[in-house]
Amino acid sequence: MTAHQPFSRQVLAELLGFDEQPSLSLYMPTHRTFPERSQDPIRYKNLVRDLQTQLEQQHPDLDCAPLLQPFHALVDDQDFWNSNRDGIAVFGARDYFKVIAVNQPLPQRAVANSHPYLKPLLRLVQSTERYQALCLTRNEVWLYEGSSEQLEKIELAEQVPRNQNEALGDELTPGNQQGFPNGFSRSGERGDAMMHEAAGGGKQDEINLDRERFFRAVDKAILEYHSQPSGLPMILVALPENQAVFRTISHNSHLLAQGIEMDPSRLGVEALRVHCSKLMAHSHADRVVDSLNRFGIAVGQRRALDNLADIAKAAWEGRVALLLVEAERQVPGLLDPDKDRLLVDESGDGQAPDVLDELILAVTRQGGEVAVIPPEHVMPTDTGAAAVCRF
């Protein structure tokens, strides 16, 4: 059976690497249950036929069979069609074939071009972005990775201390040390006084210092061995007092400003996934609003563009810091970087590339951000795109 794969930033990076070669992209909704799913292979076969037609028109001298062979083979893979979720994206190029399965419907479209068609996936990565959840108590740390669809505990790198003993060793305050400020002894996970004892000597101060040193060691190792390699946003799951201490000392730029202020040891995996999914949805909505606000500010600073040809020129020059693209909009045509012009296709046959997708590719490759604006938000321009320039 052909394997489904989840969408990830690694897959996106792979697709961005294909340029100036025949590339095939196929999107379609799929169904989990009979009888609807019995029609999926038929719809898919028609889309593959569209791919073949486009490919033959664009490259009349090219032997298309090797590129199309894995697409054709999928038609008869009954196990594959019986195990789908709500949508698939299928990509092919020379020596490359990948099927991405997602838990939400995708638009039905087949595109042959010099690079993969990416806009539906970019909108998807914003709404189902993968993340890491750092679970932290005073004395322990563990890590999950997942998305809105699933969450799995992952093995910490060997260099990450699992608890205070591993982090501090002989420097850890002994458990039998006497003397406590204000006459109190050890604290619970929430920092509540657990036991009264006469004497003083600052053990509670030492306990708090141990926590801070443990958190510093965790932050440094998590950043180096998990956040930087993955590039994923990180959600901190910890009680409020531990959130405050960790955020004060953390240098992890991937750490989201909002965390889950609960004791992670009391959360099951499914409950944690639900909490994380809600937080990620809010974070995505906030990023969309922030992108719209950034464009509004740029208008006042004369760093905003709304003309497609002007945006394209700025993108090729590496001047676009942020590109906003209307999710449901398509502008058939081509951008010609050599002649600095926009060629709009008015034939209406649906075979031309999407200008907005061309802009996405150009901006992404120059290190700019891309925000796909969903229908529930008002796009600030009527061209389907807007840009904030670096200068």
Rank of each mutant, 00 (worst) to 15 (best):
P174V: 09
G333T: 10
Q204V: 06
V102D: 01
R303Q: 15
D306T: 14
N84W: 00
E212D: 07
R123I: 01
I311P: 03
E149D: 15
H4V: 03
D76F: 05
A315N: 04
V48C: 09
E326K: 11
A93W: 01
M234H: 01
A13I: 01
L267H: 08
L223E: 11
P174L: 08
G350D: 06
H226V: 03
R94A: 14
M379G: 02
G350F: 03
I154K: 08
A327R: 06
M1Y: 11
E224A: 14
L172F: 09
L67Y: 06
P174F: 12
A257W: 08
Q301T: 11
T383S: 15
A193R: 14
K98E: 09
Q57M: 13
P332Q: 03
F295H: 10
H275Q: 13
V125W: 04
M280S: 03
Q366L: 01
M195W: 07
R390P: 07
Q351S: 14
E358Q: 15
D349N: 15
D170G: 00
C389L: 14
F80L: 10
I260Q: 05
Q39R: 13
R390H: 03
M280T: 07
L16P: 07
M262C: 10
L151A: 06
D357M: 10
L168D: 03
H251P: 00
A221C: 05
A198H: 13
N307C: 07
G259F: 11
R319S: 13
L51V: 08
E358G: 11
G188F: 04
L335F: 11
T33W: 05
A157P: 13
H284P: 00
A133Q: 06
T364L: 15
N82C: 08
Q78C: 00
R123V: 01
F91V: 03
P116R: 00
F246M: 09
Q132N: 11
P337W: 02
F34W: 06
T2V: 14
R9F: 04
Y144V: 04
A198P: 09
D338Y: 11
G259S: 07
F91T: 03
Q78H: 13
V218D: 00
L343F: 05
H254C: 14
Q164H: 00
T381E: 04
F18H: 14
P353Y: 10
S114H: 14
D219T: 08
I260D: 02
G202M: 11
L323C: 07
D86G: 01
R319I: 05
R190G: 09
R390D: 10
P337I: 10
E149H: 15
A298S: 15
S187C: 11
A244V: 13
P66W: 07
E270C: 10
V48G: 01
L342S: 12
M379Y: 08
I311Q: 02
R186F: 10
D170F: 12
V237A: 02
Q330V: 15
I373W: 05
E241Y: 06
M28F: 03
A285H: 12
E206M: 14
Y144R: 01
T2E: 06
Q126L: 04
Q243M: 11
H254E: 11
G384N: 08
V363D: 02
R302I: 00
V11L: 14
N182G: 15
D345H: 07
P107C: 05
A217C: 04
S148A: 15
I42G: 05
